[in-house]
Write a protein that binds this DNA or RNA. Structure first.
Lengths: 209, 209
DNA sequence: ACAAGAAATGAATGCTGATTCACTTGTTAT
DNA sequence: ATAACAAGTGAATCAGCATTCATTTCTTGT
C-alpha cells in the first residue's frame, strides 16, 4: 500500500480542473464556442490535450459546464433583481433592463450563450437555462397577479414570450457580424433597451381583450 | 461540332435539380438538417453523390436553398395574412395565430427552420428570414400607427420582439424531445396560441408609460 | 454510325479536430 | 530508497462526412 489520494492532491486536481474551465470560458468569450478547440484550451491552460480528458468526459461535457457556469451567474443576477424592492412591474423592469445592458456590454459571450449555433449537448444546457429564466419571470408575474398589479394571465406562457422577445432583440445587435467592426464605437443601445423593456412590460401588464 | 445543350437537356437538368431539392427538403422535414447527409439525399433522389455537386456548389449551399424555399413559403403566407381585411390589430392577430398553428402542425420542419443548430451558411439564411418576418410585422405596425389603431412606438424594435416572442414560445413545444414520444397524441395547443398572440398584441397595442 | 463533348457515377480521398493510449513523470507510504 | 500506483503527456489514431475525379454513360449534329 503506497499511493493514497491526499488532500493536497485533491486540491491540486481541483485547481487544474478549474484552470481548464476558466481557459475554456475565456476562449469562448473571445470567439464563441465555434473556435474554442480542445488543443487551444489545453495550451492556454498549460496542460496536454490528454489531460483535459482526465477532468472531463468529452469536449461537449466540458463546454456544457462552461455554459452552465456562465449562465448560472446570469440567472443569479436576474433572480437578485427580481427579488429586490418595488412591485412586480418595477422589478421586472429592472431585471430586464439590466440583463439587456449586461449582454450588450459583453457581446461575444452573450451571443455565445444566447444565439450561437452549438452542438446538442450544449444546446440542451441552453434550453435548460432559458427555462430557468422563464421560471424566474413566471414567479414574478404570479406575484404581480396575486398582488393585483398584473392582470390574470397564463404566467408560464407570458414568461416564455418575455424571454423570447428579449433574446431575439439582442441577437441582431450581438451577432459577430454586427459586433466585429465597430467593436469600439460606442453605439447607444439605450433606445433599443427601452423599447424591449417597454414591449415586454406591455405584454405582461396589458389587459386581455 | 456535335453536342450542344438543347432545351430537352436543360429541362431534364432542372428537373433533377428540383428533385434533389425536394428530397433534401423531405430529409429535413423528417429529422432536421442534422441528419440530412448528402449521400442520403442522393440515394433518395436516385442520383450519385457526385451528381449533387453538379447542381450545387456545396452541401451548405444546397441546404441554404432548401431553407430559403421553405421559409419563403412561410413568409409569403404571413405577408398574405397581413395584407388581408381588417385593421392592423386584426391582421396581426390573424397572421400570428396562423403562423403558430402551422408550425405546430409540422413540428419537425418548423423546428429545423426556427431553432435547430445549423451551420453558418444556413444560419445566415435564418437571420435573413427572421428579418423578413420582422419587416412584415414592422410594416403592419406602421400602418396601424398611421391609422391611429396603434400607439406611437419604435416599430422596428417592437416587430423584433414579436418575432422573438413567438419563436421562443414555439421552441419548447416543437423541440424533438417534446415531439418524439407523444407524436400522435393530440395535444391541444390552443391555450398556448392564445397566450402568445395575446402577449404580442398587448406588447404592440399598449400605451407606453 | 460516329465523333465530340456533356453529364453522371461512386469509390477513393481529404479534412478537421476530437479522442486514445503506451509511456513518462510525480506522489505517497513504508 | 523503493514499491505501488496516479496523474500527465502528446503524437498517433480515428471517425464522420463532404468533396473530388478518373471513368463510364448518355446526347447531339452530321
Amino acid at each position: 500500500m503506497a499511493y493514497r489520494e491526499t488532500e493536497k492532491m485533491r486540491q491540486r486536481k481541483a485547481l487544474a480542473r478549474q484552470r481548464i474551465l476558466d481557459c475554456a470560458r475565456s476562449r469562448v468569450s473571445e470567439g464563441g464556442f465555434r473556435n474554442a478547440q480542445i488543443s487551444q484550451v489545453a495550451s492556454q491552460a498549460e496542460v496536454a490535450t490528454g489531460t483535459i480528458y482526465r477532468h472531463f468526459e468529452s469536449k461537449e461535457e466540458l463546454f456544457a459546464e462552461v455554459f452552465r457556469a456562465a449562465t448560472e451567474q446570469e440567472v443569479a443576477r436576474v433572480a437578485k433583481d427580481l427579488a429586490g424592492d418595488g412591485d412586480a412591474i418595477e422589478r421586472l423592469e429592472r431585471a430586464l433592463q439590466r440583463f439587456a445592458r449586461r449582454a450588450l456590454r459583453a457581446p461575444t459571450m452573450a451571443w455565445a450563450l444566447i444565439a450561437e449555433p452549438v452542438d446538442p449537448r450544449v444546446e440542451a444546457e441552453r434550453l435548460l437555462y432559458r427555462r430557468a429564466y422563464a421560471e424566474l419571470f413566471e414567479t414574478a408575474i404570479r406575484e404581480g397577479m396575486a398582488a393585483g398589479t398584473l392582470p390574470a394571465q397564463e404566467a408560464r406562457h407570458s414568461s416564455t414570450c418575455l424571454v423570447g422577445a428579449i433574446a431575439e432583440s439582442l441577437v441582431g445587435p450581438l451577432s459577430p457580424t454586427q459586433t466585429a467592426h465597430h467593436e469600439t464605437s460606442i453605439t447607444d443601445h439605450e433606445p433599443l433597451v427601452k423599447t424591449i423593456v417597454g414591449f415586454c412590460l406591455q405584454g405582461v401588464t396589458g389587459t386581455r381583450r
